[in-house]
Design a protein around this nucleic acid. Structure first.
Length: 439
DNA sequence: TCTGGGGTCCTAGGACCC
DNA sequence: TCTGGGGTCCTAGGACCC
């Protein structure tokens, strides 16, 4: 951070964090921000709020005796569980989310393993969103523990001077989350979603980073392409084979050649490299409709027992159908997912003659898609059922708006409440919709 | 070391239609 | 007798994210 602060003399650095606040006076800060990259001249002010070690932090908050200990939240090792979140103390041992619990336990034998409650995390997530809504109606959850905010319209309230408005707002927001939820978050601020998103990661935990587009480019130019959001292992390798190693390489690489090699994603890769994305932050009650609803389960032990597989598929179908009905969707397509003992995963799907939310139809369709080799021969590790190509029931049955009450205020209130309630349904199970960040 | 669960988006071939 | 081009749907698989 002091390295970044070292750029202050150039009058262009707008990277700030908690260290910065503690060590710099208001005067120094205003000198720092007072430049042509000042947030005051931004066309948009986007924030990304990312809760720190969310599940683990909630567990520690609820049981202070866990404070300072390596806390690991996830499924049990003997049921092939993985880590879904862990405290920073656990990370010191090399534990991270997505890691098999068996391995985490070996790395961190004294770690406190907690199964956790997705329902409770969803509840806290809802509380967090409610706080964020006090700053702007444009709050778009990305997952249980993350959201984008477009606070462009809120800037005037947080002046004077205007150049400090994003900083003041972000500090206030962090303070309120700390006071109300007793949790910390990291906030990234920038002129686009991608900049805000990348910025929030920089000073975790309890960070606050404001990044101009210029500074964003300076900061990431020499970093490997894999730091970019959306560039995973495979894409990084593909780019590396084209001699594209750093973010700067990606920016400089001729667009037409990149499109030839990478297809459509080339455009997006260039965009994130430059921090130029124009993606809007959706208002909470105008989120794009869900595209699919699915449930899957991994068995504690692989199974060749067809009756067991049937029962499991039925249970999964019931869960999927229930969610379809609750959210008033019908599915045009039913999809089955099977993972074998050798970890090979296949999917089979079928488009129905009539869209449905009926568990029996979903189950029968899913079961009929189960290939012969998995009916007693090849051991099955995982089964999944997905409802796809969703349509709103109302769109289909032509039920009109008139069926709702006449009181427009109550109507919009209940709509908002319903929307907030549905966050848990939609995001409370650590699901995400990464696509909305981009497209 | 033995790899969860819930999502989104993209690609690609073949069918089918105009 | 050889031969269009475009559009959309269906199905399977894969990359990626949290």
């Amino acid at each position: 951070m002091f390295e970044l602060a070292g750029h202050n003399g150039l009058g262009r650095n707008v990277v700030l964090n908690k260290m910065f606040f503690e060590h710099k006076s208001a005067k120094e800060m205003s000198d720092n921000i007072n430049s042509k990259t000042s947030p005051k001249n931004w066309d948009r002010v986007i924030m990304h709020v990312d809760m720190d070690a969310f599940f683990a932090a909630i567990e520690i908050r609820n049981d202070p005796s866990l404070k300072g200990k390596p806390v690991i939240v996830g499924g049990p090792a003997d049921k092939r569980g993985v880590v879904s979140a862990c405290s920073y103390e656990a990370r010191e041992f090399g534990v991270h989310s997505g890691m098999p619990m068996a391995r985490a336990q070996r790395l961190c034998p004294d770690g406190v393993i907690i199964g956790g409650s997705l329902e409770m995390y969803g509840h806290v997530s809802t509380q967090m969103i409610k706080i964020l809504l006090d700053y702007t109606p444009l709050v778009e959850p990305v997952s249980v523990d993350e959201a984008f905010l477009d606070v462009t319209g809120s800037m005037k309230i947080w002046s004077e001077p205007l150049s400090h408005a994003p900083l003041r707002l972000a500090r206030d927001l962090k303070k309120r989350i700390k006071e109300n939820l007793d949790l910390t978050c990291s906030v990234g601020v920038g002129q686009s979603r991608i900049i805000a998103k990348m910025a929030s990661k920089l000073e975790k935990p309890d960070g606050l980073t404001i990044l101009s587009r210029k500074r964003y480019r300076e900061l990431f130019a020499q970093k490997p392409v894999s730091v970019l959001w959306g560039v995973g292992e495979k894409t990084a390798h593909a780019l590396n084979r084209m001699k594209i190693i750093t973010v700067a390489d990606l920016i400089e690489f001729p667009a037409d050649q990149l499109i030839k090699r990478m297809g459509k994603s080339a455009i997006w890769l260039k965009t994130i490299a430059k921090g130029d994305d124009t993606g809007k932050v959706h208002a909470l009650d105008h989120l794009p409709d869900e595209k699919s609803i699915s449930h899957e389960t991994t068995f504690a032990k692989d199974s060749t027992d067809l009756e067991y597989l049937r029962t499991t598929l039925l249970a999964l179908s019931v869960k999927v159908a229930r969610r379809l009905r609750r959210s008033e969707f019908l599915a045009k397509t039913v999809s089955l997912k099977v993972r074998s003992d050798s970890f090979k995963t296949i999917t089979r799907d079928k488009t129905l003659s009539q869209p449905t939310d009926d568990q029996t139809i979903i189950f029968k369709t899913a079961f009929s898609l189960l290939p012969e080799e998995f009916r007693g021969k090849v051991p099955v590790r995982l089964l999944g059922v997905k409802a796809d190509s969703l349509v709103k029931r109302n769109d289909l049955t032509q039920l009109s708006l008139f069926t709702h009450g006449p009181d427009s205020h109550n109507q919009s209130m209940s709509k908002l409440n319903k929307t907030i309630d549905s966050i848990k349904e939609r995001f409370g199970d650590s699901s995400v919709k990464p696509g909305t960040l981009i497209r």
